Deep mutational scan, measured.
Amino acid sequence: MDALKSAGRALIRSPSLAKQSWGGGGRHRKLPENWTDTRETLLEGMLFSLKYLGMTLVEQPKGEELSAAAIKRIVATAKASGKKLQKVTLKVSPRGIILTDNLTNQLIENVSIYRISYCTADKMHDKVFAYIAQSQHNQSLECHAFLCTKRKMAQAVTLTVAQAFKVAFEFWQVSKEEKEKRDKASQEGGDVLGARQDCTPPLKSLVATGNLLDLEETAKAPLSTVSANTTNMDEVPRPQALSGSSVVWELDDGLDEAFSRLAQSRTNPQVLDTGLTAQDMHYAQCLSPVDWDKPDSSGTEQDDLFSF
């Protein structure tokens, strides 16, 4: 819950932080000083300027060897085509990944977070970031790969997607708890209302004896509580940590079903599988986004697919 609360507080303090972009060759504004600060901008989305290598189908939802083989196929196909790589912007948030063309600003792909089953910074092609997700059109699994400016960037994108998945799962947990509370309150309110109706004398007997209905007592009954809980029953509950912020979080049926399955089948359902080692994760978390744009010590960066 700490990640969720800190993310909400950060967004309320400075929503404009989320509009910064990394990996864009110096076009961005001043960047936060450390990885923790940038992680807090996830709610509205972190932007990464990358190059799209392509996509291939895979048979399993996750796995280092599986993704490595898929990336190898994608890279080989991209090299064989001889075409310049498409420059894209990857927007990562707890909602998922939005992929747009840098030149036309046209939407290429919009992947809900619950469809993503794996992401990684490839070991062999260490400047490549990739994720595996279920197609929104059918049940097939797709591996999408992107060329980053350097290994640090690939690791940073991988960690960002993993963190977005974690925050999304926490949102789901909060929403589920809130819905259970509202359902319980609604049920209790309905029981109270039913009890009051059972003990209320029939209207005919009131008229016969000349008694008047006590409207004041009726007004004191917990009807307002019942209506408050039943009027918006169809509205999706939102985490309290975000009250007053500009973010509107809505959970669709697909996300609810997917996270429910994860909660039942996995020990740590909030953790998205990645190909990063503990050492890689520690190294990337210690980086400032400013470091992502620094040239690798191995030599001059080449803006070309064939540089790796």
Rank of each mutant, 00 (worst) to 15 (best):
D2A: 05
L4C: 06
K5Y: 12
A10Q: 15
I12G: 15
R13V: 10
L17V: 14
A18I: 09
Q20M: 13
S21E: 08
W22V: 02
W22K: 02
G24T: 03
G25Q: 12
G25M: 01
G26N: 08
P32L: 10
E33C: 10
N34Q: 11
N34C: 04
D37Q: 12
R39M: 03
L42I: 14
M46Q: 05
M46V: 12
S49D: 05
S49Y: 05
Y52T: 07
G54C: 00
M55W: 07
V58Q: 01
P61S: 02
G63D: 11
E64G: 12
E64H: 15
E65V: 13
E65R: 08
E65D: 11
L66M: 08
A70L: 02
A70F: 01
R73G: 09
R73D: 13
V75T: 02
A76C: 01
T77C: 05
A78C: 14
K79G: 01
A80K: 06
A80C: 02
A80R: 12
K83Y: 04
L85I: 07
Q86L: 09
K87A: 09
V88E: 00
T89H: 12
S93L: 15
S93D: 03
S93N: 11
P94S: 13
P94R: 14
P94D: 05
R95Q: 01
R95W: 06
G96R: 12
I97K: 00
L99N: 04
T100D: 05
D101F: 15
L103D: 07
T104V: 01
T104D: 04
Q106L: 12
Q106S: 10
Q106E: 07
Q106R: 15
Q106Y: 06
I108C: 06
E109D: 13
N110F: 04
V111G: 00
V111A: 03
I113Y: 04
I113S: 03
R115L: 06
Y118G: 02
M124F: 05
H125W: 00
D126Y: 00
D126T: 00
D126G: 00
A133I: 05
Q134I: 02
Q134D: 14
N138Q: 12
Q139D: 13
L141W: 12
L141H: 15
H144M: 15
K150L: 11
K152F: 03
M153F: 11
Q155G: 03
Q155M: 13
A156L: 11
T158M: 05
L159D: 04
T160S: 15
T160I: 12
A164Y: 07
A164W: 09
F165P: 01
K166M: 06
A168M: 14
A168K: 03
F171C: 15
F171I: 08
W172A: 03
W172T: 03
W172R: 02
Q173P: 05
V174Y: 08
V174W: 00
S175G: 15
E177G: 13
E180G: 15
K181E: 13
K181H: 14
K181P: 12
K184F: 14
K184E: 09
K184Q: 12
S186R: 04
Q187D: 02
Q187A: 04
E188Q: 05
E188L: 05
G189K: 06
G190W: 02
D191E: 08
L193K: 08
G194I: 07
G194H: 11
R196G: 03
R196E: 10
C199I: 04
T200I: 09
P201S: 04
L203Y: 13
L206M: 11
L206Y: 05
L206N: 05
T209M: 07
L212D: 13
L215A: 13
E216R: 08
E217H: 08
E217T: 14
T218G: 14
A219N: 10
A219K: 04
A221D: 05
L223H: 03
L223T: 09
T231D: 11
D234E: 10
V236T: 07
V236I: 12
V236A: 14
R238Q: 05
R238W: 09
R238E: 04
P239G: 03
Q240L: 12
A241M: 10
S243G: 12
G244N: 12
E250C: 04
G254S: 12
L255H: 04
D256K: 05
E257Y: 09
E257L: 10
A258S: 03
A258V: 03
S260E: 12
R261T: 04
Q264M: 13
Q264F: 09
Q264Y: 03
S265M: 12
R266S: 06
N268K: 05
P269H: 03
D273F: 05
D273V: 04
T274F: 02
M281W: 08
L287S: 11
L287R: 13
S288W: 08
D291T: 09
D291L: 09
D293W: 02
D296P: 11
S297V: 13
S297A: 12
S298T: 05
G299S: 01
G299F: 08
E301F: 06
Q302L: 11
D304A: 05
L305C: 08
F306R: 01
